[in-house]
């Protein structure tokens, strides 16, 4: 049994007087213990909503969540808010995109880190402060005792993200969800944070769901990659497989639009034409069809299903055949 099994997860946003919007449309994937799984896709493809649904952090009103999210066999979607509250921070940790706005500006770092420890592990304030200092040290924050008394605006972006990681990992959760944890950081700091995450995941055996639009992040970190498009997984493969031979035209397009150091001089980048707004609904065919270079008649009529193909899962009528020149 996998640590986390997401089956047919569907999230529909519904507002009175407006057509319901399906943000996540039957997403399934599994995370094994100690594994790092990537969810990749462009803005609006449902990455973050998927993570919020797993955490039980979506608003109750106006949102319909269906399908199944099983964590160690327990169904999370039917748990009471109280049960989910006890799980968050203890079993499930989450790191967000913007490290400055994710910290409470009027409360010192120390109080924010100890809050989790006091909440889930019932520690006294003084004991929690000692543990908090160790945690900050563990995530590579120098002089942790002094930092405990400081406020978020006094820390650099990288340090804030380290502090948030320390908070998320304070109670040693079995699963950590990182939602674009490096997007708001400088490139050099990005590398540090990624190195830290991969080190911590290895040291603690925490499973990691890495949500990102940056294929470079995926390349360095993930064991398995799920490529999302318009709320559905369109391709799932092991990391090396995916990068060596992207089969879905969308994945292929994503990879060809990245500049490469070893590309011949003067070679142009190939962007994916069109925009997400060109999508057609999945029920009528393939959502990517209007932007797809490999589009067939069939793509506009028949919804492609997830099919096993050559050791990977693929949702495409006409996948890319040739290999990317390495």
């Amino acid at each position: 049994m996998a640590l986390l099994e997401v089956t047919d997860l569907t999230v529909v946003f519904q507002r009175r007087g407006e057509a319901p919007f399906t943000a996540v449309d039957g997403v399934s994937f599994a995370v094994e213990e100690g594994q790092t799984v990537g969810l990749v896709g462009e803005s609006g493809c449902g990455k973050s909503v998927t993570s919020l649904a797993i955490m039980g952090l979506l608003p109750r009103r106006g949102v319909r969540v269906s399908g199944s999210v099983r964590f160690e066999g327990a169904e999370l979607l039917t748990e009471s808010p109280r049960q989910m509250r006890d799980r968050r921070g203890r079993d499930l940790g989450m790191v967000f995109q913007d490290p400055l706005s994710s910290l409470n500006p009027v409360v010192s770092i120390g109080i924010q880190v100890t809050e989790v420890l006091e909440r889930h592990r019932g520690m006294s304030r003084s004991k929690a402060m000692r543990v908090a200092a160790e945690l900050l040290d563990q995530v590579g924050i120098p002089d942790p005792r002094r930092r405990l008394d400081e406020y978020p605006h006094q820390l650099s972006g990288g340090m804030r993200q380290r502090a948030l990681i320390a908070m998320a990992l304070a109670c040693q959760p079995r699963l950590l969800i990182a939602d674009e944890p490096t997007t708001a950081l400088d490139v050099t700091i990005q590398a540090q944070i990624l190195a830290l995450l991969s080190q911590l995941v290895r040291d603690t055996g925490t499973a990691l769901i890495m949500i990102t639009h940056d294929l470079g992040v995926v390349a360095g970190l993930c064991d398995e990659v799920n490529v999302l498009y318009a709320g559905r997984v369109v391709e799932r493969a092991a990391r090396h497989e995916l990068f060596a031979r992207p089969r879905h035209p969308y994945t292929h397009g994503l990879l060809s639009s990245i500049p490469r150091l070893d590309a011949p001089r003067g070679e142009r980048l190939v962007p994916i034409r069109g925009a997400v707004t060109d999508n057609i609904p999945w029920t009528q065919g393939c959502a990517f069809a209007p932007r797809c270079p490999n589009v067939l008649e069939k793509c506009l009529d028949v919804t492609p299903e997830m099919e096993e193909d050559d050791g990977r899962l693929l949702r495409c009528h006409n996948p890319v055949r040739q290999e990317v020149p390495a």
């Binding site: 509250r85 968050r88 203890r90 940790g93 967000f96 913007d98 994710s102």
Partner: peptide, 17 residues
């Protein structure tokens, strides 16, 4: 609706806190 409140909720902080 702020990010840090969402982050606090993601840590399981109780509503009163």
């Amino acid at each position: 609706n702020s990010d840090h409140v969402l982050a606090a909720r993601a840590l399981g902080v109780r509503p009163r806190a």
